Amino acid sequence: MIIGALGAVVVAIGILLIPLPGPGWLIVIGGLAIWAIEFVWARHLLQFTKDKVRGWTEWVKRQSLLVRVLIGLAGMVFVAAVLLTTLRYSFGVNVVSQAWHYVKTR
């Protein structure tokens, strides 16, 4: 019961952090690993997740440098978009508008 509750708390925290830049998915997987100690279904889901991540990693390693750079850039653009959206709608800070205003006044 304690393992189940601890895993649920870790998974819930990870899910809350997914929209933010950072280790949201990693925390969810950590919670899943805690659940896997006690629950067979979590063990199967964790193994499935590991297999998919390993497959993705191996596929990326086989790609040319250009493709790996493009994948990295796409990841950075995605994280930047999430960060800018979070700042805009959670804190009311429009970084793009402020940066544009700064550029125009210089």
Rank of each mutant, 00 (worst) to 15 (best):
G4P: 04
G4D: 04
A8W: 10
A8Q: 07
V9P: 00
V10M: 01
V10L: 09
I13M: 10
I13N: 00
G14A: 08
G14T: 06
I15C: 08
P19A: 06
P21T: 07
G22R: 00
G24W: 00
W25K: 02
W25H: 00
W25D: 00
I29C: 05
I29R: 03
G30K: 04
G30R: 05
G30H: 11
G31F: 03
I34S: 00
A36C: 08
E38R: 14
F39G: 01
W41N: 02
R43Y: 05
L45S: 08
L45H: 04
Q47L: 15
F48D: 14
T49S: 09
T49I: 13
K50G: 11
D51E: 14
D51K: 05
K52L: 09
R54L: 15
G55H: 12
W56R: 08
W56N: 04
T57G: 05
W59I: 04
R62D: 06
Q63H: 10
L66G: 09
V67Y: 10
R68F: 09
R68D: 04
V69N: 08
L70F: 14
I71G: 01
I71R: 03
I71H: 00
G72R: 02
G72D: 06
A74M: 13
M76D: 04
M76S: 06
M76C: 13
V77R: 03
F78R: 00
A80K: 03
A81G: 14
A81T: 09
V82M: 15
V82D: 15
L87Q: 05
R88A: 01
S90A: 12
F91E: 01
V93M: 13
V95G: 03
W100N: 05
V103T: 13
T105W: 13
